[in-house]
Amino acid sequence: ERGPAAAGGSGQPEALSLEEILRLYNQPINEEQAWAVCYQCCGALRARARRRQPPAAGLQAPAQLRIWRDGAVSLEPAAGSGKLEHSYSSETEIIESLGIIIYKALDYGLKENEERELSPPLERLIDHMTNTVEADGGKDEGYEALDEGVEEDDEDEKEVEVIHSYKDVMKLCAAHLPTRSEAPNHYQAVCRALFAETMELYTFLAKIK
């Protein structure tokens, strides 16, 4: 598990939170970044379940989503919840919160009476994420899902109609691409670019200051 975003050899941070990215650009993320952060975050949460690590505690704010230099995305504990926090959230609760955070990142800076026109597939993804149905077993964050990556699943060709798991979110994100098998590399590259471009802006603004 990754710790806090430590400075690398260059003295620059190794990760930025989604909140830092939004504030620095002072504009919303784009749709491709939204797909990528969803995919990468769900991938990290699935991997955590496969390693039988404790389920994630609540996801409440974009400050908890960290985008790393290598394009990985991790979920940090909420501020104020220490290591001894045991009020874990279910998989569907985390997915719903992630959907809301991603939507708000797409909506960043818009007035209350304005609404961004999203592409239908992305709007459908967010709609599904915020309409999740608890899978059997409830709050176990998919410990039964010990299979490896979504791209190897025979059922991937089936359209996800109701989201039960991180894997369902990843399937929808992969289906957005012309070739589903490109999802891991593509979305990692999008997140890596998001980090790199934000750091570039950060360095530029620091120089001006």
Partner: peptide, 23 residues
């Protein structure tokens, strides 16, 4: 001001923004 990369429409009562804001 630079051109927006996305379209903005008035918020609709049955739209996704209204739904999310009720969560």
């Amino acid at each position: 001001k630079g051109k927006s990369l996305y379209n903005i429409k008035p918020k609709h009562d049955s739209g996704i923004k209204a739904k999310i804001s009720m969560k």
